[in-house]
């Protein structure tokens, strides 16, 4: 079972990485020109426009099955609430994306041709993720609402 899930993971990663490269997402200048409306190159909108309907079909197909081909169950995020973490986190992510032109996928996918700026980005991203994990754990300890308990 473990061998099969590993092979599926590898195949999915290859498709994803090839897709990012073919689409132009591993060219940060193109990403910046997509996000910068003053010299707009709208190409990359087509990446999502093509990926989303194909993915929607995958989820609809899967909904009719009891379990994945090689696994016990389908795993999807369970949270439904629009909480502060989601909104603050997404805003910070957008800020970082618009600053450098890298989101996590293309940054990792560019590792075969890495240079110092890319490695700096990836190291800082890893630190940021560990930091977010610590913040999340602290909030979890402070209760479900994530509010600090104030004693008067």
């Amino acid at each position: 079972m473990k061998l099969r899930t590993t092979v599926v993971g590898l195949a999915a990663g290859l498709l994803f990485g090839a897709g990012l490269a073919l689409s132009g997402m591993t060219n940060p200048a193109k990403v910046m020109n997509f996000l910068d409306v003053t010299r707009w190159d709208p190409s990359l909108a087509l990446v999502m426009a093509a990926a989303i309907p194909v993915s929607a079909l995958a989820f609809r197909f899967a909904a009719r099955r009891e379990r994945p081909l090689f696994g016990a169950a389908f795993s999807l995020p369970e949270k439904t609430r629009l909480d502060a973490s989601l909104l603050i986190g997404s805003a910070l992510f957008g800020l970082g994306w618009g600053l450098g032109g890298y989101c996590p996928g293309p940054a990792v996918a560019s590792l075969s041709d890495a240079n110092a700026p890319l490695l700096g980005f990836l190291a800082a991203m890893t630190v940021g993720m560990l930091l977010a994990g610590l913040i999340g754990r602290r909030r979890a300890l402070q209760g479900d609402q994530g509010r600090p308990k104030i004693r008067r």
């Binding site: 060219n27 910070l92 992510f93 970082g96 450098g100 041709d113 700026p117 980005f121």
Partner: peptide, 25 residues
């Protein structure tokens, strides 16, 4: 795969924001 024209300090700051942001979100 093309290099990012941004400098290392800018990309390090961007990386931190992307890491914290995607982690929280």
């Amino acid at each position: 795969i093309r290099p990012d024209p941004a400098s290392t300090p800018v990309l390090a700051a961007a990386g931190l924001l992307v890491g914290v942001g995607t982690g929280l979100a």
